[in-house]
Design a protein around this nucleic acid. Structure first.
Length: 262
DNA sequence: ATGGTAGACGCTCTA
């Protein structure tokens, strides 16, 4: 048996977060890392300091906004960027690779701004495209498939610090939760909830604007590991690395790490 | 009815 650790982290700019990312990679030493909101074109992605830690890197970035990247200690095959049929102007929010015995999809789901807005409708449309893509391109019954990243959706009120304040709001609205449920219903499991039961207060994102972390864990759980059955079967642990949200210049998200015995 | 912070960019947008 060997252990494979897969991590996800919305870094909110790879270049701004490098002083936090590099020491974190050294201390946690994950085998595979899915990054979101890299906010940089591929040519300017700071590859060298990450390659020095023996990672291969696949990037799918754009200027200023969005952007995803996968780091892996193993070789990466079948690198797929975006969804089938996307044109080059489409927002850069999805990248998939086959590495170390897993199909890994790194996702930065649309935020949606406000329920009912154009961005909200784009979010729901994007989630529909994601579902079709996963349904058509991956064998969830037979393969170890890992969908991870910033989903910008809570599953239910257990994932919310103040459910009353967030009721029906963006990240918590009925339509978003239904879209996430429809994705799950393809044959995926919310690995964190599967292994942690109804544990409360487990969040992955805290709003900078309201100083939600410092003011007492006022967060949401929106960064997820959605696993196919063969992946869930070998998953032994999922945990949120709150330490990375503390200290100088953190991202607004904490990393989430999943461990597999394969 | 919409502040607060953070990041990239270039005096504004996105989260």
């Amino acid at each position: 048996m060997t252990k494979v650790t897969i991590a996800t982290w919305n870094v909110n700019s790879i270049r701004a977060r490098l002083p936090r990312l590099i020491p974190w990679l050294k201390s946690r030493n994950p085998d595979i890392v899915c990054l979101q909101e890299t906010k940089v074109v591929d040519e300017l992605f700071p590859k060298e300091p990450i390659e020095e830690l023996y990672y291969n890197i696949a990037t799918f970035g754009q200027k200023t906004y969005n952007g995803v990247a996968i780091l892996s200690k193993g070789p990466m095959e079948d690198i797929t960027k975006g969804f089938p049929g996307d044109d080059e102007n489409e927002q850069k929010r999805a990248i998939a690779v086959r590495t170390m015995g897993f199909h890994v999809l790194d996702l930065y789901v649309v935020n949606g701004k406000e329920v009912g807005s154009d961005k909200y409708n784009y979010k729901l449309m994007w989630l529909k495209k994601l579902r079709e893509y996963v349904k058509n391109e991956f064998d969830l019954e037979k393969e170890r498939v890992v969908l991870t990243g910033d989903f910008n959706i809570t599953f239910d009120d257990l994932d919310v610090y103040d459910p009353k304040a967030w009721e029906g709001k963006i990240l918590c609205s009925k339509k978003e939760r239904e879209a996430l449920k429809e994705l799950i219903n393809l044959g995926l499991t919310d690995a964190f909830r599967q292994l942690h039961g109804n544990e409360e207060g487990q969040y992955t994102w805290w709003d900078f604007r309201t100083r939600a972390f410092q003011r007492g864990n006022r967060g949401l759980r929106i960064d997820h590991f959605l696993l196919s059955h063969p992946a869930m079967e070998v998953c032994t642990k999922v945990w949120i690395d709150r330490e990375a949200r503390e200290g100088e210049k953190p991202s607004d998200h904490a990393p989430v790490l999943a461990e597999f015995e394969v």
